[in-house]
Structures are given as structure tokens and as C-alpha cells.
Design a protein around this nucleic acid. Sequence first.
DNA 1: CCATCATATGCCTATATGGGCATGCGTCAA
DNA 2: TTGACGCATGCCCATATAGGCATATGATGG
Lengths: 120, 120
Amino acid sequence: MARAATTSDTFNAIAELQRREILVLLRSGERPVTELARDLGMTQPQASKHLRVLREVGLVQVRGMGKQRLYALDARGLRPVHEWLGGFEQFWNESFDRLDEYVQELKRTRQTGPRDGDEQ
Amino acid sequence: MARAATTSDTFNAIAELQRREILVLLRSGERPVTELARDLGMTQPQASKHLRVLREVGLVQVRGMGKQRLYALDARGLRPVHEWLGGFEQFWNESFDRLDEYVQELKRTRQTGPRDGDEQ
DNA sequence: CCATCATATGCCTATATGGGCATGCGTCAA
DNA sequence: TTGACGCATGCCCATATAGGCATATGATGG
């Protein structure tokens, strides 16, 4: 069934490097498609397609400005993702080095002898 | 060229819902493959494959425990992603409602007249 | 060494995607 | 209205998946 459609899924939308670059670039203000394409070294159709995905998940907004279409960042959709990741914050602080773990295991063993039900 | 390989790319690794669910489940402790598969309603091969991707990007670590293989969360790889998203924090706070923007634009116009270089 | 349980893989299919290219479409100036 | 410019799409191709299934691999107990 292949991967879930990028459309309507922020996680997938930002899984693509070029799209992340577009978002970063848009932090400094609205930009027309051509300019984005030029600055990021991609073709115009390519930029348009990525922008479409970003638009569909709501990460950017468009505004017709004469012949141009100005794309603006709308980061609100990134918040839930940021929060989801925040749920792991305590875990990346618990130094999870295999080595550290091993050393700690040794310490415990030396002090109280091997134990079984103490992970988690 | 299709999408970049999920392997060696944390963003892509967590772009898949089932993999995110695995990570969440692992927050409560190490688990053998079969248990993960059962709890998440997926087949064993499916779980193994997702775990492989997670292992390749370093989000989980395995530990042989008798006949079983216990998978443990290693959230360190999520930190960079969390930080990348953090770079947008100020943006999702700037109420980016089209409506709000429009209203504010009207306010400014009424006070100082139309201006040009004030976005950004 | 053999049977068995727990996993990892290989293989095949349907699908979604990103890139390249040509072209349709909307807006603006003359 | 016509021509030009700026973008959005449609189409085709190559590729990477996720799933389903069957099976190879590993480790354990006899």
C-alpha cells in the first residue's frame, strides 16, 4: 500500500528535505514561487509541487499579488509535531548510551547483586 | 526518484504512523517484537520491518534476551528534530490567521495609511 | 543433534511520489 | 485583444515503500 499520502499529514510533509528548506526560507517573509525555486536551486514546477503539498497540510498560505503568488509560512501546524516530540524529552536526557547503561548495570550489580525487575 | 530513503533519515522514520506508535509504546519500557505487534495490531513481520527502520536511524536499540529480542527506545535522535521545529516556535505564536492579518492590516491602514515594507 | 519458539528476511504487488518537460491558465501592460 | 510573464498542472518514468505470505535464521530446551 505504499506510504500514506503526504497530503493531509504534516509529518510526511516535513519528511522531505526540500520542503523543510522552503519552510525555513519562508521564515524570513513571503516569497513568490520563482524566487523560492531560484534560492533553493530547484525548478519552478518542482517548487510549485512542494508548495502545493505544504499548502494542503496548511503549512503555507498563498496570497495573489498581481501576477505573482506570494507564499507565506503558517507554522501553526508544526506545533502539534513539536509537542509530540516534546513527549520524548525526558527520554533523550536519560543518557541512553549502551556504555552508560552497562556501567550503571555493573554498579547496581556490585551494590545489590543482580536484579531482575528493575528496568522500567 | 521517489522519496528519499527512510533509512538514515529520522524525519522519514517518524513520518510513518505505525512507527510513531511503536516509539510511544516503547516509552513505557523494553518490549519484544511479538508484544509490540500484538499491542499495535500489526503482523510480526510488519513490526520487524518497522523496527528495522527505527533501528537503522538509531531510534531504538535491540538487546538479545534469550530467544527474544527486546527493543528499547533511544530518543536521542528525536532531539535534533525537536530543535528544528523549535525554530518555528515564534511563528506559530504570531497568530497567522488570514483574518487576523487582514484585520490588523486594516487597523494600520486607518492609523498610518497604507504602508509597504512592513511585513517582516 | 532435533523440535520449537521468536524474529528477521525475501519476494511480489499495488501505490504514492519526486523529477523532468511541455503546456494550460490567470493577470497585467500596451 | 494580444503578448508576455508567473505559476499550476498533466503526463510519463524510475524508485522506494508498506503489506501479505512463506520461509530462513537464531537461540533454547531435551
